[in-house]
Simulated assay, not measured.
Amino acid sequence: MQFKSLLIITVLCTGCSFSNSPQSNVRGQANNADILEGRLSILTGGRGAGSLTGKDGKCHDLALPASVLSNVKDWDGYTVIVHGESIARPSVDGALHYKILDRQVEAGGCGDETFYVREIEKK
């Protein structure tokens, strides 16, 4: 019985990686494609963190492209439209950041999902 439980846990966690080291690689599952609009906020330092606050006041964590993070002054505070998909992320105590597809994202934030930005435009 103990062997079956161990086997099930091992199979379920294949590909999982949780740690608080700089190389943390926590991956979520993509669950839908979407378009969001709202005011962009970018926090500099670390790996960079972004969020978008919609007209309804709802906050969305963002996985921003490097081109936006390297030009914070051109984007921070503007109303933008972003295209991409929401990706669920696990809550891992002590994690400093996690990886969503090809981007490192700061831990914390305002929601249980991170919106992976494929395209961004100012409104």
Rank of each mutant, 00 (worst) to 15 (best):
H60G: 00
I9V: 07
S51P: 00
C59D: 04
S70G: 07
I35W: 09
S67E: 11
K123M: 06
L69T: 14
A63Y: 01
L69I: 10
S24N: 15
E106M: 13
G28S: 10
R47D: 08
G111S: 15
A63P: 02
F115M: 01
L6D: 13
I120K: 01
M1C: 06
H60M: 01
V105M: 12
D112T: 11
L12M: 15
K73S: 15
S24F: 04
G77T: 09
R103E: 11
K73F: 03
G28L: 10
L96F: 08
G45N: 06
S19A: 11
G28K: 04
R118C: 03
D102G: 01
I9R: 14
W75P: 03
E121Q: 11
R39S: 08
G111D: 12
G109K: 04
L101R: 13
I9K: 12
G109N: 10
Q23C: 12
P22R: 10
L40E: 05
F18S: 08
Y98V: 00
S5D: 14
K4D: 14
G50T: 05
Q23G: 14
L96V: 14
K58W: 01
S24D: 15
G46D: 07
P65R: 06
C110G: 05
D76M: 07
K122F: 04
G84N: 00
H60W: 10
S5M: 11
Q2A: 11
Y98E: 04
I9M: 07
I35A: 02
N20D: 14
S86H: 13
R47C: 09
I100A: 13
I42V: 15
K122I: 14
D93K: 12
R39G: 04
G46C: 10
G84A: 03
G109S: 09
T53F: 00
A33G: 03
I35N: 04
L7G: 01
Q104F: 13
K4L: 14
A66D: 12
S41K: 14
N20K: 12
L12K: 14
V11T: 12
G94D: 08
L64K: 05
L101K: 12
T44A: 13
R27P: 02
V82R: 00
F3K: 13
I87L: 02
V82I: 09
G94Y: 02
I120P: 03
A88K: 13
H60V: 02
G15V: 05
F18K: 04
I100Q: 13
L6K: 09
S91N: 15
K73H: 07
G54Y: 00
F3N: 11
G108L: 06
E121A: 13
N71M: 04
L7R: 14
K99F: 03
S70W: 05
L52F: 05
